[in-house]
Simulated assay, not measured.
Amino acid sequence: MNQQMAEQRTQIQTLIDNIETVMVGKRETIELTIVALLAQGHVLLEDVPGVGKTMLVRSIAKSLDLDFRRIQFTPDLLPSDVTGVSIYNQKEMEFQFQPGPIMGNIVLADEINRTSPKTQSALLESMEEKHITVDGMTRPLNDPFFVLATQNPIEYEGTYPLPEAQLDRFLIKLKMGYPVKQEEITMLDRSTHGHPIDAVEPVMTRADLLEKQEEVQDIHVSASVKQYIVEIVTNTRKHPLIQLGASPRASIALMKAAQAYALIQSRDYVIPDDVKYMAPHVLAHRLQLTAEAKFEGKTDKQLLEDLIKKTMIPVERG
């Protein structure tokens, strides 16, 4: 490990440690969220209320000293409530743009499945294009730009589930789960004299993050590892229990996620284990199972793990 990579690992681990002062026992979730941030992707977090989804995003924003915005999605929310709107200024006798919450660096899209497909599309288009168009004028979003969207898995009445084409725009889908007993006791201890989020201080700058996002793109991916990625993704399209397999966008997403994970592991190259570890998090939400698979109680992650086991792992030589 060269000195530069060692310094990178130290800085990233310091960031993760800082966030973990708020998110007790959720190191893997934090690490995977940072992977998405470094890979310039976005995260869909599906879990029950009260497990810390909002605190995760706020602690990331505070640790990086970035602008945090929160959008509470409701059935009556309009696309302009997300992107912003032009308002006529009588004094200046001209229209002036009032930016919406999408113009932040770190954006929490809370309960995204509670709003109409039209408003969902306004957010998801912004995520993909990294700009918004209001009154015919295109405006770039801030850099860095990261969205963490949440949805509640137990309340389906009055919701608008994201279609497969929109799920495909999230780099990673995560679930946090409840803490174990000792972790929950630690949370109580830390919350005795105020919320831990109030004590979070920045440990990285915007410039540091942008530099690391650039470095992720320089992480080497060999021809054999690229072949391995494509074989895994292609096999999802051939599996008898998968009705809709992963798209070519998924292959790109898996490569970028593996590159970011390699950087966190202090390597300037991707190994097959990086791909194996990231594949369920990147690919599972992009699959649509057959009725037979659902009847048998199969899950997308189970099918992926089985598929990955049957895919030959490349051996690097030289």
Score class of each variant (00 low, 15 high):
Glu125Cys: 13
Thr234Gly: 08
Pro117Phe: 08
Lys301Ile: 12
Gln40Thr: 05
Pro140Trp: 14
Asp189Met: 13
Met312Pro: 10
Val230Asn: 03
Tyr228Gly: 02
Thr311Gly: 08
Val51Ser: 08
Leu304Tyr: 10
Ile106Pro: 10
Ile232Gln: 05
Ile30Gln: 01
Val221Ile: 03
Pro179Gln: 06
Glu215His: 12
Asp168Glu: 10
Val216Ile: 05
Leu77Ile: 13
Pro101Ser: 07
Leu162Gly: 00
His285Cys: 02
Tyr160Pro: 00
Thr10Ala: 12
Glu92Gly: 06
Gln259Ala: 05
Glu125Pro: 14
Ser247Lys: 02
Arg114Leu: 00
His193Phe: 15
Val225Glu: 10
Gly136Asp: 06
Lys309Ile: 14
Asp274Arg: 00
Leu289Ser: 04
Gln40Ile: 04
Phe68Thr: 11
Lys212Leu: 15
Phe295Arg: 04
Glu94Asn: 09
Asn18Ser: 07
Ser121Glu: 05
Pro280Gln: 05
Met204Arg: 03
Thr150Asn: 08
Glu7Val: 11
Lys175Asp: 09
Asp67Phe: 14
Val233Leu: 07
Ala6Pro: 01
Arg249Ala: 05
Ala199Met: 04
Ser121Arg: 02
Ser266Thr: 04
Ala258Pro: 14
Val225Trp: 14
Pro161Asn: 07
Ala207Phe: 15
Gly318Leu: 02
Gly50Tyr: 15
Lys226Met: 12
Glu28Gln: 11
Ile132Cys: 09
Leu209Cys: 10
Ile264Val: 11
Ile242Thr: 08
Ser251Glu: 04
Ala149Tyr: 13
Arg27Gln: 08
Ala262Arg: 06
Glu214Trp: 05
Gly297Ser: 09
Gly158Trp: 00
Thr234Trp: 06
Asp76Lys: 02
Ser251Asn: 08
Arg169Met: 10
Ser251Pro: 14
Gln151Gly: 01
Arg169Ile: 14
Thr290Ala: 03
Ile112Asn: 00
Leu283Glu: 08
Tyr88Cys: 11
Pro79Phe: 15
Ile252Tyr: 03
Ser126His: 01
Arg169Leu: 06
Ala279Val: 15
Leu78Val: 11
Val270Thr: 10
Asp208His: 14
Ala109Tyr: 11
Ala61Asp: 03
Tyr88Leu: 13
Met176Asp: 02
Val282Glu: 06
Val85Ser: 03
Ala257Gly: 06
Gly41Asn: 06
Thr192Tyr: 14
Arg317Lys: 11
Pro179Ala: 07
Val282His: 07
Leu210Pro: 11
Val35Met: 06
Arg70Asp: 12
Gly25Lys: 01
Asn18Arg: 01
Lys238Leu: 15
Lys238His: 12
Glu111Thr: 02
Ile197Ser: 07
Gln3Arg: 06
Val233Ala: 06
Glu215Asp: 08
Leu254Val: 15
Ile229Tyr: 07
Ala109Val: 09
Ser126Glu: 04
